[in-house]
Measured scan of single mutants.
Amino acid sequence: SISSRVKSKRIQLGLNQAELAQKVGTTQQSIEQLENGKTKRPRFLPELASALGVSVDWLLN
């Protein structure tokens, strides 16, 4: 799922939720909701993929 991929990649990069949120241009709460499965397809998906160094396709599939 996107939530597990985001969380595992974030941890692999040594980032906390607030640091990832800053790179993406969103809030820590938005990252938390995404990782908890409350958000399925965030509006900041391209920025998120870029910050994590992955493709949008990788996040979604």
Score class of each variant (00 low, 15 high):
residue 14 G to I: 02
residue 20 L to Q: 02
residue 54 V to N: 00
residue 53 G to D: 09
residue 24 V to Y: 00
residue 24 V to T: 09
residue 24 V to C: 13
residue 21 A to K: 02
residue 12 Q to H: 09
residue 29 Q to T: 11
residue 11 I to M: 12
residue 43 R to C: 13
residue 47 E to T: 09
residue 4 S to I: 12
residue 59 L to E: 02
residue 48 L to V: 06
residue 54 V to F: 03
residue 40 K to W: 12
residue 56 V to F: 08
residue 31 I to E: 00
residue 10 R to D: 02
residue 49 A to Q: 01
residue 6 V to H: 00
residue 44 F to A: 04
residue 40 K to E: 15
residue 21 A to I: 01
residue 14 G to Q: 07
residue 1 S to L: 10
residue 50 S to A: 14
residue 32 E to G: 07
residue 7 K to F: 03
residue 12 Q to G: 09
residue 35 E to H: 01
residue 52 L to K: 00
residue 11 I to F: 06
residue 9 K to Q: 11
residue 12 Q to D: 12
residue 34 L to P: 02
residue 34 L to F: 08
residue 35 E to P: 02
residue 53 G to W: 01
residue 9 K to D: 02
residue 4 S to M: 12
residue 11 I to Y: 06
residue 21 A to Q: 01
residue 50 S to W: 10
residue 42 P to Y: 09
residue 38 K to L: 14
residue 45 L to G: 04
residue 58 W to A: 04
residue 24 V to G: 02
residue 13 L to K: 07
residue 60 L to W: 09
residue 17 Q to D: 04
residue 13 L to Y: 03
residue 55 S to F: 05
residue 52 L to D: 00
residue 45 L to E: 02
residue 59 L to D: 02
residue 53 G to I: 03
residue 3 S to Y: 03
residue 39 T to L: 15
residue 23 K to T: 09
residue 59 L to C: 01
residue 9 K to P: 02
residue 28 Q to P: 13
residue 42 P to L: 10
residue 7 K to C: 07
residue 61 N to T: 08
residue 6 V to E: 01
residue 38 K to S: 14
residue 22 Q to D: 13
residue 12 Q to V: 07
residue 55 S to H: 09
residue 52 L to P: 01
residue 23 K to F: 10
residue 44 F to Q: 05
residue 52 L to A: 00
residue 47 E to M: 09
residue 51 A to C: 06
residue 50 S to P: 04
residue 47 E to K: 11
residue 41 R to Q: 13
residue 1 S to F: 09
residue 4 S to E: 15
residue 34 L to Y: 05
residue 37 G to F: 04
residue 49 A to Y: 00
residue 11 I to C: 10
residue 22 Q to K: 14
residue 51 A to P: 00
residue 35 E to Q: 02
residue 29 Q to L: 13
residue 61 N to A: 13
residue 53 G to M: 06
residue 23 K to A: 12
residue 17 Q to K: 07
residue 25 G to K: 06
residue 47 E to Q: 14
residue 50 S to N: 14
residue 59 L to Y: 01
residue 7 K to R: 14
residue 54 V to S: 03
residue 30 S to M: 15
residue 18 A to L: 14
residue 48 L to K: 00
residue 2 I to E: 03
residue 22 Q to M: 11
residue 47 E to L: 09
residue 5 R to Q: 06
residue 40 K to R: 11
residue 48 L to M: 05
residue 57 D to W: 09
residue 13 L to W: 02
residue 11 I to G: 07
residue 61 N to M: 10
residue 18 A to P: 05
residue 1 S to V: 12
residue 60 L to F: 08
residue 9 K to M: 14
residue 9 K to I: 13
residue 27 T to Q: 06
residue 47 E to C: 09
residue 30 S to W: 15
residue 44 F to N: 08
residue 8 S to D: 12
residue 23 K to V: 11
residue 25 G to R: 06
residue 6 V to P: 02
residue 3 S to I: 06
residue 54 V to C: 06
residue 18 A to Q: 12
residue 18 A to S: 15
residue 57 D to T: 06
residue 14 G to F: 03
residue 35 E to S: 01
residue 54 V to P: 01
residue 30 S to G: 10
residue 12 Q to R: 09
residue 39 T to H: 12
residue 24 V to H: 02
residue 51 A to I: 10
residue 38 K to A: 14
residue 17 Q to P: 09
residue 37 G to W: 03
residue 55 S to C: 07
residue 48 L to R: 00
residue 23 K to N: 07
residue 31 I to G: 00
residue 59 L to G: 03
residue 2 I to P: 04
residue 56 V to N: 05
residue 11 I to D: 07
residue 57 D to L: 06
residue 28 Q to E: 13
residue 8 S to V: 10
residue 26 T to G: 05
residue 33 Q to W: 14
residue 43 R to M: 13
residue 17 Q to I: 12
residue 47 E to W: 04
residue 52 L to Y: 00
residue 43 R to Y: 12
residue 38 K to W: 10
residue 36 N to P: 01
residue 51 A to K: 04
residue 1 S to W: 09
residue 61 N to R: 08
residue 19 E to K: 04
residue 50 S to F: 12
residue 48 L to P: 00
residue 28 Q to K: 13
residue 20 L to G: 02
residue 3 S to T: 06
residue 22 Q to P: 02
residue 28 Q to W: 08
residue 44 F to R: 06
residue 22 Q to C: 10
residue 27 T to R: 06
residue 49 A to D: 01
residue 35 E to W: 00
residue 38 K to Y: 14
residue 22 Q to I: 12
residue 46 P to H: 14
residue 55 S to A: 08
residue 1 S to C: 14
residue 15 L to K: 03
residue 44 F to V: 03
residue 60 L to A: 09
residue 15 L to V: 06
residue 24 V to A: 11
residue 34 L to M: 07
residue 51 A to N: 04
